[in-house]
Design a protein around this nucleic acid. Sequence first.
DNA 1: CCGCTCTTTTGAACATGTTCAAGTCAGATG
DNA 2: CATCTGACTTGAACATGTTCAAAAGAGCGG
Lengths: 230, 230
Amino acid sequence: MEVITLTGVTDSATAKGEQTRELILSTALRLFREQGYGKTTMRAIANEAGVSVGNAYYYYGSKDHLMQAYYDLLQDQHREAVEPILATEKAFVPRLAGVLRTWLDVSAPYHEFAGTLFKTAADPRSPLSPFSEESRPARDASVEIFRRVIDGSDLKLAADLKAELPELLWLLQMGVVLFWVHDQSEDVRRSRALIDRAVPLVDRLLRLTRIPGVRGVTNDIVGLINSIKP
Amino acid sequence: MEVITLTGVTDSATAKGEQTRELILSTALRLFREQGYGKTTMRAIANEAGVSVGNAYYYYGSKDHLMQAYYDLLQDQHREAVEPILATEKAFVPRLAGVLRTWLDVSAPYHEFAGTLFKTAADPRSPLSPFSEESRPARDASVEIFRRVIDGSDLKLAADLKAELPELLWLLQMGVVLFWVHDQSEDVRRSRALIDRAVPLVDRLLRLTRIPGVRGVTNDIVGLINSIKP
DNA sequence: CCGCTCTTTTGAACATGTTCAAGTCAGATG
DNA sequence: CATCTGACTTGAACATGTTCAAAAGAGCGG
């Protein structure tokens, strides 16, 4: 993988192969954006990039792998776009709502193409599956965002719940994504409405956990969630 | 589609075409079971059924349509298999647990092949999507099972929650399915464990809704669920 | 029985993701 | 420089879902 020459220069980023790899990826992403995933053929990608089909497969094991690269890009953009919110907003509700809304904003250009992405991601054997080992880094990064949402906020919670909450909020995001993928309303208005209603509700639910009679159930829920983690 | 002869006999079920249609379907289902969905080619199905490839496409628009027929079959089997439980069991927890466990039992032979099914179902454009219009009959039938789980049980609930609960339980089942699809443990032990823990928890949560402070949040949740229905 | 129309059936052709044996090239080694 | 090695590249071949124009069959009116 990495190129180490005896002239002393380690330069995996600009080595011939890496250039080709990036050329193929960027071409693929452009075509995906322009014509959608389904209509973009591997031949078209190779053609447009000026390489052979086989060469594309040398760097990316399948068309899905190119999509995964696309997905990773989205994740990165979300992570960046979320920074201002985490830096300025201090109350839990707007922090969480902001993070979720930002996801919609970042993903908006890809809504048409999200169906295909989602379809692939749903296959448990796909590396894109949000539960797969390959996507662990992306998932961890996403969970980390929610950890920061909580830690930087005014939320007061029992320690064990607080530890588990980032992953629960990640699940909430998965739910929003599921809804968004199916959302055909203009400007995905309904997805935004869902966030607007769901976030305050989550907030209220979390405050409820302080009621003694509720605490026990909460612990059981946390325990259940823990038990289903792989 | 339907054959109406002037001799007065309406016989769509045994008309030539229907026979072919069923031959193709049963052959496809057998091959799916024997070798999995992915490894079963349309050519193999046509071959085995003794017809041409084009003929299979004359009756089923795509390979996915054959899978949908498969899925409908599963649903039917579940509906039947659940009857004894609904007839004998009266307590809410064993009723619900029984229905969910029965789903696992019925689906067990198809676990390997469930990934593909799930993948297709996840595509919002697919008729197999659990949220699609085409699958509404199957979904309604499934929700109906959960309505009977509640109605025939000893559960005491506020009317509005009770009205919404069948759909919530259907969502719970979707969650179990999601987990099951990814479950690689032997005999899907972990999925069974999930049911064993989740069902009593659901029961406790429902009883909690009687606490005054919880009632309000419950109503909000019901409202939210209602608002996201299409 | 003949032709007409509609359904059914055929199989070759097509599109596209994927594989692979063989070729090319760049740098290292002697 | 000649050779070697491993990374890189090629394009034809393959597998399989899907389409389609044409053929075959079936019932019907004459």
